[in-house]
Amino acid sequence: MQLADIPSEILGQIGTVQRITFPRQGHTSTVAVLETADQRYVIKKTEHELYNEWLSDEHIAMQLLQGKGLPIPKTHSFCAEHQSRWLLMDYIEGISLRQFLASHPSQEDKERAITSFGRCLRKLHECPCPMEWQRKESAWLDTMLSKAEYNLAHYSIDGNEHLLTHLKKNRPSTVQPTLIHGDFTIDNVLVRDGEVVGMIDWAGAAYGDPRYDVALAIRPKTNAFEDERDKHIFYDAYGKRRLTEEEYRYFEDGIYNFF
């Protein structure tokens, strides 16, 4: 991404860009930090049918969730241009929880960050869900399985037909739906001084099964959730029941492979 590539309607909103930098990149979008004389912004660009849809969903989600008391960026502009989509939002000062844990903090600081992570998810699941999502006719899991089937037929993903059949036949017990993030991983939570200050990448937000968020939160990664102690700290802060091993496998080893 070059400065000249950014749509003029976006640049017209923020004024002269003095500096552009590129943080660690994900797999679905190009991300840049734009610095003007008095503010920093994040701009995301996608160029793929599926990822364009996700960016649009993220924009809608963050608009609906503004003012709910959650640490999310404020959005300023969404632009569709040819085969690309652009989303401009405020920059939140912090690093991902994954980066923080990879820096080998002290045990005390590590546990404080994981505690904040668990509390953050509890706050999210207790937050009132926008009525626009609650009114949807299809249940969240039905929608996810339909999307999984579509993604399997049209895109290169980790899931396969055998796994999808298993997921359809072995649904977990029903629980009360809540507001969910839909991709609550240690990459999508920002921390500063060991405390959560931001949640990003809201494309999967919905009125859905909170166990999906929990399963993704406790996925073992280098320096994170590799032992039971990290999970105990997380669950103590989260304050709700632990997932069974079967539930964890259904969501993390199952549904997540199609997205």
Rank of each mutant, 00 (worst) to 15 (best):
L243M: 09
Y51N: 02
D230E: 08
G254W: 13
Q39N: 14
I255V: 11
L141N: 09
L70W: 14
S146N: 14
L141I: 05
D193W: 13
K45V: 01
A217D: 09
H166P: 04
H166V: 12
R211C: 09
W86L: 00
L88F: 03
D230V: 04
R24E: 13
I114D: 01
I255Y: 01
K240N: 14
G182V: 02
G204Q: 08
V197Q: 02
L164D: 14
I200L: 08
Q107E: 13
A237V: 10
E126R: 12
R241Q: 11
Y51Q: 02
V214M: 04
Q18T: 12
P210A: 15
L11D: 06
D201G: 02
Y212K: 00
D90C: 09
A148L: 08
R24C: 08
S146Y: 13
D109R: 15
C127A: 06
A148F: 06
S8P: 11
P172C: 13
S96I: 06
Y207E: 09
F234R: 02
D253P: 01
I14P: 03
E228Y: 07
T165D: 03
C120A: 12
H162F: 11
C79I: 10
G69R: 05
G12K: 04
Y250K: 15
F258I: 09
R211S: 10
L55S: 07
D253K: 10
T36L: 01
E126D: 10
A237P: 12
I186M: 00
C129Y: 00
G67D: 00
R249P: 12
E93P: 07
K147N: 08
K68Y: 15
Q13R: 14
L34M: 08
D38P: 09
L163W: 04
I114F: 00
V214Y: 02
L216W: 02
D183G: 03
Y155E: 13
T16A: 14
Q25H: 08
T16S: 05
E81Y: 03
L34A: 10
K169W: 05
A237E: 13
C120R: 02
K45H: 11
V196W: 15
E247L: 01
E81D: 14
K68D: 13
T115Q: 08
E228D: 08
R19V: 04
R249H: 11
H82Q: 13
I72D: 02
F258A: 06
R219F: 02
K110T: 06
E226I: 06
Y248R: 12
E161D: 11
Q66F: 02
I114E: 05
G67Q: 08
M199I: 15
F234K: 02
I60F: 00
A37H: 14
L88H: 00
D253W: 01
V33S: 11
D90G: 06
C79N: 07
L88C: 03
D109T: 14
Q25D: 04
G208L: 06
E108M: 05
G204F: 01
F100D: 15
H162E: 15
Y248L: 13
D5N: 14
T185S: 10
A217N: 06
G208C: 10
V197H: 00
S156C: 04
Q99W: 11
M62G: 07
L152T: 08
D5A: 11
L34R: 12
Y91M: 01
I95Y: 03
L124G: 04
I92S: 00
N257T: 15
A203E: 03
